[in-house]
Design a protein around this nucleic acid. Structure first.
Length: 513
RNA sequence: GGCCCGUUCGUCUAGGGGUUAGGACAUCAGAUUUUCAUUCUGGUAACAGGGGUUCGAUUCCCCUACGGGCUACCA
């Protein structure tokens, strides 16, 4: 069997879109499963759109996501260079080959002339306003100009491009691994530019030449490439590389969570979720976009989520490690329809992975946060906090953000609870409870609970009323982790302090409301 | 406009000529938790529409509708 070689080939025009990460993931999964090779190639043939830092960003993103690269940018390999701008001369050679074999031609049309042609066709009501087998005979190119004139123009240094000479009749067929057979009529294809006037190849040429030279066995890419896939097939044929042509698999797109269209950065901004794997600052505008990593998504959760957007194993298992994904993945089980991006599900995956982490790792998350905030805290206390918080957090940063009351007395208090439940009975309870916990020998969750229950029973007050009042007095909030454990962690003295504060301040609120 | 691709619960999807159309997220209810969350249990909820083919179509075919992509000397 042919060696499996796949490539992820982004262009360095900015941050890597999350859809690109999924494409990379599917390529990676497929390569690993078949003991194949995963190649990273940079398609930087558009000099105008080049963004400094984008390439490094892509590498870093894949690394964070756990998508390993076997060959290519940052790794090297037998087919170097893997940056298309560094392969410029090579494409020229292959373009010339196509000219020689009559599959391509020189074109000298200016932008204005091209526009005039399209306008003319549009007014005439022609369906295809393109440079093709019929219109090319009305344009300035080596097909319409005498050979001597073409030669003269070439020598004179006027700008020109090389275009593919698409046959007038016939059809192109391709067998897509996901979509089955796709057929396109030749006359619907246009004479695509292969070499631009700046001497760089277009995507179409570079991609085919490189995939051939790099022995790519499978092209797994987004659906936006499906319309030009027949053109690529035609190129393989024109070169006489049909036997070595890779197999194609065009992935369904990632769609907006709501409304119509494909997922865009705008949607992410509007709905408040990341769209880039890592935080990215646009060097042009200076605009900063928080990445999945910085937002607190674990790479394994993001990968699991992404893998299921368009693919599924056909079983009821939902949680998959990268290793399991490699084993279970198959192109045949990739769906055809676009998948809406649902950040809620991503968060659910994150919770699953977060909760499965050992406490020591979770403690490290919290410890990191505390160091950043300049808060000192004993490892024992951190461990206790993590243990009591782990079932209620979605992101690592939540340990600190939702547990601030462990470190500082609350600044604000849930006013609805106070308004509703701060009354003579509860005040009386707090007073007695204060005394009661002062006298506890061992101040821990169990003894606190006993004191709490006994105090309530002695006063004849229902505990349900008291729990929330006590919680608000201690944490400021109406909800939170186990209250008795919270008191234990905060400690006796701090608990008493907060109760004193509540007694003097909550009274004012109750009186005024 | 043209070409290509698609369409199962709100979302991700399984399934496939005869099924109570399955799961997950979300949502709702109950239980547990003397609070909230977690957890558990249960519920609501889908084959876009119309024609065929067939004993029988959600499944196969066609049409329509809708959605998406492409339509550059961008990838």
């Amino acid at each position: 069997m042919k060696e499996i070689r796949v490539r992820f080939a982004p262009s360095p025009t900015g941050a890597l879109h999350i859809g690109g990460v999924r494409t990379a993931l599917y390529n990676y999964l497929f390569a690993r499963q078949h003991n194949g090779t995963m190649i990273l190639r940079i398609e930087d043939t558009d000099q105008n759109r080049y963004v400094p830092g984008a390439e490094a960003y892509i590498i870093e993103s894949l690394k964070w996501a756990g998508i390993g690269i076997d060959e290519g940018i940052g790794v090297g390999g037998p087919f170097a260079p893997y940056r298309q701008s560094e392969r410029k001369e090579l494409y020229r050679k292959y373009a010339d080959q196509l000219i020689d074999s009559g599959h391509a031609y020189y074109a000298f049309d200016t932008e204005a002339e091209l526009e005039a042609m399209r306008d003319r066709l549009k007014k005439a009501g022609v369906d295809y306003q393109q440079y093709n087998s019929v219109t090319r005979m009305t344009m300035r190119n080596s097909l319409t100009l005498p050979a001597s004139e073409t030669e003269k123009l070439l020598q004179s240094g006027v700008p020109y491009v090389i275009r593919l000479k698409v046959p007038e009749t016939g059809e192109v067929r391709l067998q897509d691994l996901i979509r089955g057979e796709v057929v396109v009529q030749m006359h619907e294809l246009d004479d695509k530019v292969l070499m631009k006037s700046d001497g760089m190849p277009t995507y179409h040429l570079a991609n085919v030449v490189d995939d051939y030279l790099m022995r790519i066995s499978h092209v797994i890419r987004g659906e936006e490439w499906l319309p030009s896939a027949p053109l690529h097939v035609l190129l393989y044929k024109s070169f006489g590389w049909e036997a070595d042509m890779p197999q194609f698999a065009h992935l369904p797109l990632l769609l907006k969570p709501d409304g119509n269209g494909k997922l865009s950065k705008r949607d992410a901004d509007r709905m408040g979720f990341p769209i880039f794997p890592l935080t990215w600052t646009d060097p042009g505008t200076g605009e900063k976009s928080v990445g999945f990593r910085e937002a607190g998504y674990l790479p394994e959760a993001l990968i699991n989520f992404l893998a299921f957007l368009g693919w599924n194993p056909g079983t009821e298992q939902e949680i998959f490690s990268m290793k399991e994904l490699i084993k279970a993945f198959s192109i045949g089980r990739i769906g055809k329809a676009g998948a809406r991006f649902d950040i809620q599900k991503a968060t659910w995956f994150n919770e699953q992975y977060l909760r499965s982490k050992p406490e020591s790792i979770l403690a490290a998350y919290l410890a990191d946060q505390l160091v950043k905030k300049g808060i000192t805290c004993s490892p024992e206390k951190i461990l206790k906090i993590v243990a009591v918080m782990r079932e209620r957090v979605s992101f690592p940063k939540d340990f600190y953000e939702q547990g601030q009351f462990f470190f500082h007395a609350p600044q604000t208090f849930d006013s609805t609870v106070i308004a509703k439940k701060w009354n003579a009975d509860t005040v009386k309870f707090i007073r007695v409870f204060q005394e009661s916990i002062e006298n506890i020998e061992q101040f821990n969750a169990e003894t606190i609970k006993t004191a709490f229950e006994k105090t309530a029973a002695d006063l004849g007050i229902k505990t349900g009323q008291l729990m929330q009042v006590l919680r608000v007095a201690i944490t400021g909030s109406a909800s939170g982790p186990d209250l008795m454990m919270t008191l234990e962690i905060i400690g006796r003295q701090e608990t008493l302090n907060r109760l004193v504060f509540a007694l003097s301040n909550f009274n004012v609120n109750a009186a005024s409301s």
